[in-house]
């Protein structure tokens, strides 16, 4: 399988394992969408702001002496976006409902991050 096919499959698996998830994206750390099942019209913006949130999260962690960032989360009334660094060059963004099973999302996200690192590495 190509890297693209592996990432597409990873997104499908994540959605199948956690049906609550409403969108998954792998983007470059400079905000370019690499693989995504977000609607096309949302994709470019989510990739860019997801990478931005990740970068900002890292700086906040550095300035506030929080240590290495494991997750950046934006929570709204209607849902949340979880963003994970996947190595130096990649970002994984997952959208889920505000009242979904966050524990399960995080558990699956952790494994997905490792897989993305391997695929992109």
């Amino acid at each position: 399988m190509t890297k693209q096919e592996q990432l597409d499959q990873l997104i499908k698996d994540l959605r199948m394992n956690v049906p609550d998830i409403t969108g998954v994206m792998v983007a470059s750390s400079d905000g370019l969408s690499i693989a995504s099942d977000f609607p096309e019209e949302e994709g470019a913006r989510i990739a860019a702001v997801g990478a931005a949130a990740s970068g900002l999260g890292n700086r906040i962690a550095q300035n506030a002496s929080l240590g290495e960032v494991s997750e950046t989360m934006v929570k709204g009334n209607d849902g949340l976006l979880l963003i994970y660094m996947t190595g130096e060059e990649g970002v994984l963004a997952i959208r889920a409902p505000a009242k979904g099973n966050l524990g399960l999302v995080r558990l699956e996200a952790s494994g997905a991050c490792e897989s993305v690192k391997k695929i992109l590495g």
Binding site: D30, G31, A44, A47, A52, L56, G57, N58, R59
Partner: peptide
């Protein structure tokens, strides 16, 4: 933490 490429995006 927003590099020039990301700002461009």
């Amino acid at each position: 933490g927003l590099n020039e490429a990301l700002l461009g995006r």
